[in-house]
Computed example of a mutant assay.
Amino acid sequence: MLKLEHIQKSFDGVHILNDLSLEIPNGEIVSILGPSGSGKTTLLNLILGITEIDEGRILFNEQDMTHVPMEQRGFNIVFQDYALFPNLTAFENITYGLKNKPQISSPEEVQELVHLLGLEKHLEKRIDQLSGGQKQRVALARTLVMKPKILLLDEPLSALDGVIKESIKERIKMIAKEYNLTTIIVTHDPEEALTLSDRVLIINEGQISQYGKPEDIMNQPSCDFVQDFILNQLEIKRRNIFALFHPMQEQMV
């Protein structure tokens, strides 16, 4: 279990996270939602170890990770832009981290992961030959072969559309269950969070507004902010989709 206890973080005297505490059970998918500047990415970076906390503790399976360096935590992240090496093939990207730590995953385990993510036909392709969805799957595979204790995803579906997005969502859920892998996702899309996650964390101004199952978020919002934020974001998404298919009508609305 991942535990955050009374986390505080400020930058230049401005409070970003203020006395934030929560528990994430092993194997669950948790999405972090909130307005721009609410502290979502800061929270992800604190868990990963990129940023040090000012006060509080981070524990994983009762081990204090608060001051453990990022490279020793065993938590891995897939960034929004994938951060793949353009001069390497898909397979070379996937196995890049194993060059220095080949004992982490056997060739058979790598092939199993490649099969799970449906990448068999794309292994010899250059990165510029891959679609957005294929790049996302390669980035996931590259992270997963290192067998992270926690998988962190920063806006993993933001560059994807339609069927591809739904396919990646299903693969993320499949992977979390297959490997009992705690997965934490930062997203701006409430529909994505509500349909992908076991629990949703909504933060505003550095504090938890609500943390619960998707059905509780929708049916029992804890406050007016949660209700308004979810409804407003869903309405914005609806209008964007409508404008895409009916541009002239949207201009008249």
Rank of each mutant, 00 (worst) to 15 (best):
180 N>E: 15
77 I>H: 00
146 M>I: 02
211 Y>H: 04
39 G>E: 05
75 F>S: 12
168 I>C: 09
144 L>S: 10
168 I>F: 07
132 G>E: 11
166 E>G: 01
136 Q>G: 10
69 P>S: 03
230 I>D: 07
80 Q>W: 01
75 F>M: 06
70 M>D: 01
223 C>H: 14
169 K>W: 02
195 T>S: 15
239 R>N: 13
58 I>H: 07
233 Q>I: 00
146 M>D: 02
147 K>A: 02
216 D>S: 12
66 T>S: 14
23 E>H: 00
1 M>P: 13
223 C>G: 15
213 K>H: 13
138 V>M: 08
197 S>E: 11
180 N>V: 08
162 G>D: 10
91 F>H: 07
216 D>E: 15
86 P>S: 06
249 Q>R: 12
249 Q>A: 14
126 R>D: 14
208 I>D: 10
133 G>A: 09
1 M>S: 13
217 I>C: 08
170 E>Q: 15
227 Q>L: 12
84 L>E: 02
48 L>G: 13
200 V>P: 13
197 S>V: 03
99 K>P: 01
10 S>F: 03
212 G>N: 15
89 T>L: 00
21 S>V: 05
100 N>L: 05
76 N>I: 06
165 K>W: 01
240 N>M: 12
66 T>D: 11
215 E>A: 06
150 I>G: 00
34 G>E: 09
51 T>E: 15
13 G>V: 02
184 I>P: 07
63 Q>C: 01
245 F>Y: 09
250 E>M: 14
50 I>C: 03
168 I>P: 06
232 N>R: 14
107 P>D: 08
81 D>R: 12
103 Q>K: 10
40 K>C: 02
245 F>H: 14
138 V>A: 05
74 G>T: 12
153 L>G: 06
52 E>H: 08
201 L>V: 09
52 E>S: 07
205 E>Y: 05
173 K>L: 07
222 S>K: 08
226 V>C: 09
208 I>V: 14
5 E>Y: 01
191 E>W: 04
111 Q>V: 01
229 F>C: 10
75 F>G: 10
167 S>C: 03
73 R>S: 06
40 K>M: 08
32 I>S: 09
67 H>L: 10
64 D>Q: 13
145 V>K: 04
194 L>Y: 07
140 L>M: 11
131 S>E: 01
96 Y>R: 00
148 P>L: 04
27 G>C: 03
231 L>R: 14
60 F>R: 02
21 S>R: 06
236 I>P: 01
243 A>I: 07
141 A>Q: 07
129 Q>S: 12
195 T>W: 02
208 I>K: 05
121 K>R: 14
4 L>D: 10
246 H>R: 07
113 L>Y: 06
9 K>F: 11
157 L>Q: 10
226 V>I: 11
181 L>H: 12
194 L>E: 06
41 T>W: 00
12 D>C: 04
210 Q>K: 02
209 S>K: 13
72 Q>S: 14
167 S>L: 04
66 T>G: 07
16 I>H: 01
100 N>G: 03
116 L>Q: 10
100 N>P: 03
218 M>V: 15
183 T>Y: 06
10 S>G: 08
114 V>N: 08
44 L>P: 05
7 I>K: 07
240 N>L: 12
114 V>A: 10
192 E>Q: 09
134 Q>L: 05
151 L>I: 06
242 F>L: 11
227 Q>A: 15
20 L>S: 06
142 R>S: 11
80 Q>V: 04
229 F>P: 10
167 S>K: 12
190 P>Q: 05
117 L>P: 11
33 L>F: 04
251 Q>M: 15
24 I>R: 03
150 I>C: 02
